[in-house]
């Protein structure tokens, strides 16, 4: 066994192979170097730097995680909302059919058009969906949209 092989076993920890132990017993230079290397090792263990400002890291990572999420998962609710608004606007533009403040029964519930919930609480569903999505994107629903949807609900 060479000097370096014996030393390599010596700093690797664990039980020494018999051959390495025999070499270290017979070679004072290697025994001295091994002690010096172990001293460096002990000093290294005490030299780890303290990391500051790590408290901010979780928030920064989470922000990047949210930004990196595929946007596709959020699109159905946005698309549903856009389609509902579009259909509603189209209905309002129809001349002389009905008063603008009274949406048709088949369109009053966007869920009926979009077949997304089947419930009667469509406005709340849509606004809730929008708010959920907006929260994930770090934005809030515009007041104008809330007002529009509330007006729609009242009218339905």
């Amino acid at each position: 066994m060479t000097h370096d092989e014996a030393l390599r076993h010596g700093v690797a920890g664990g039980p020494l192979p018999q051959e390495a132990q025999a070499h270290l017993n017979a070679c004072p230079d290697c025994a001295a170097e091994l002690e010096a290397l172990r001293a460096i090792e002990r000093r290294l263990s005490r030299s780890a730097p303290r990391v500051q400002e790590v408290d901010l890291l979780p928030g920064r990572v989470l922000a990047r995680v949210r930004r990196s999420r595929p946007r596709g998962w959020a699109m159905p609710s946005a698309a549903a909302l856009a389609l509902a608004v579009g259909l509603w606007a189209a209905w309002l533009s129809r001349p002389g059919e009905r008063p603008a403040s009274t949406p048709p029964a088949e369109l009053a519930s966007a869920s009926a058009v979009l077949d997304i919930s089947g419930g009667t609480d469509t406005t709340a569903d849509l606004l809730g969906a929008y708010e959920t999505e907006a929260a994930s994107l770090g934005t809030a629903p515009p007041e104008a949209l809330k007002g529009f949807l509330s007006a729609t609900e009242d009218g339905g």
Partner: peptide
């Protein structure tokens, strides 16, 4: 869980 992971290993990783 993401937050816990970052708290657990963030310092070591930055170091």
């Amino acid at each position: 869980a993401v937050r816990d992971m970052v708290r657990a290993y963030g310092g070591a990783l930055i170091r």
